[in-house]
Design a protein around this nucleic acid. Sequence first.
RNA 1: GGACAGGUGGCCGAGUGGUUAAAGGCAGCAGACUGUAAAUCUGCCCGCGCAAGCGUACGCUAGUUCGAAUCUAGCCCUGUCCA
Length: 409
Amino acid sequence: MTQYQSTLLRLLDERGYIHQLTDAAGLDKLASEGVVPGYIGFDATAPSLHVGSLVQIMMLRRLQQAGHKPIVLMGGGTTKVGDPSGKDESRKLLTEQAIRDNIASIRTVFERFLTFGDGPTDAVLVDNDEWLSKLGYIELLRTVGPHFTINRMMTFDSVKLRLDREQPLTFLEFNYMILQAYDFRELSMRQGCRLQMGGSDQWGNIVNGIELARRMNGTEVFGLTTPLLTTADGAKMGKTAAGAVWLNEDALPAYDFWQYWRNCDDRDVGRFLKLFTDLPLDEVARLASLEGAEINAAKIVLANEVTRLCRGDDAAKAAEATASATFAGGGLGEDLPVYAIPAEGLTIVDALVGIGFATSRGEARRLVAGGGARLDGVAINDESHRIDAQATEIRISAGKKRHGILRPA
RNA sequence: GGACAGGUGGCCGAGUGGUUAAAGGCAGCAGACUGUAAAUCUGCCCGCGCAAGCGUACGCUAGUUCGAAUCUAGCCCUGUCCA
């Protein structure tokens, strides 16, 4: 990599955030001269972002750490349109109220990663609905339309993907890139924003914004993308069997969040420590070089640090304590899911369903038949096995990793 | 509006009248081996039921048939080309 002068680019570079830059030298110069307001856009399609967005969130954090101003752009307006990037299917449209609620919920997570306020390097959160919803159609066509050619829009991956797969791309979605470009230009005027960051799939959209700002206002702005993050075995970040790994506490308990990181692939440890924690690089290097079973120590550090950032210190400590009691001690931890045994008792199958380890009785039965169900560490092979209400706390397990507590009602 | 091609389980994708709850692959779950890792091997993978079995399911609806994912009609949706 090149030698960057600015703290910002050095920081981003050495921690592995940089995939592409529109003008490395220009941005480097800008960032070493003063405060650069930079933004990343986020969807408001769900009440929580998930781990897949964590790189972008961390990048805003780095921006602030390097003395610049992070702008969180919530796509309240663009969510009404739907980004076709990476989707092979159109999204369902959300109501305005749902979008507003989502934004409020998502904001709580950003408040953990960024310092908000009115100061020059304090983070701000803006919603593009503010300006997008006020746009008149004819006005938009006249001001922005001339700067886009269909020829070029057709070459974008997000468009080509749909066309190649002979899947529908609606005009609504086709307009997404125009709106996103408009956002950049708008933020450059409102907030003096000079930089847009995003995942590598956003490159095209970002470049559009840069051009639009230049053509309409003569402003020079910059773009930076992160590499597409996958786990070592090629899966997208943040997806597990149980669903997405949500950042909001109410969407995913801290213990499960912690476990996600604790269970990461050996090969990912170093990369993740650099991207998702504030640990100094020499410490990261030390942890990542651990071999064999020792690397588990590094995974615990990773889990602790990420959980701490995202969920707070208490949540991280509780999750670690629970994990250590559950796995190392064979005991029980506070954070495990709990299910109350009714007075008349219940079967192992009902208990597995009740605590959420199986989604149907059939699945629970198969789990028992396959030898994956345990009570206090003892495999139960009889699916009609009954659990008494009189008993004290019982540890119930599905497989080696999912554990819970059965407690008399 | 017209011609043609399509719509199958989370995804991809076989299947053109019964033996099809639907091949195969991916993803997922469990077991073995390990280190709460990876790789590998084995089993499972619509719901209810201890079970025999029952109920749902191949875009929707109505038919033909003893019997349909498979045939017919209408409708809806998608793509390609034409207007």
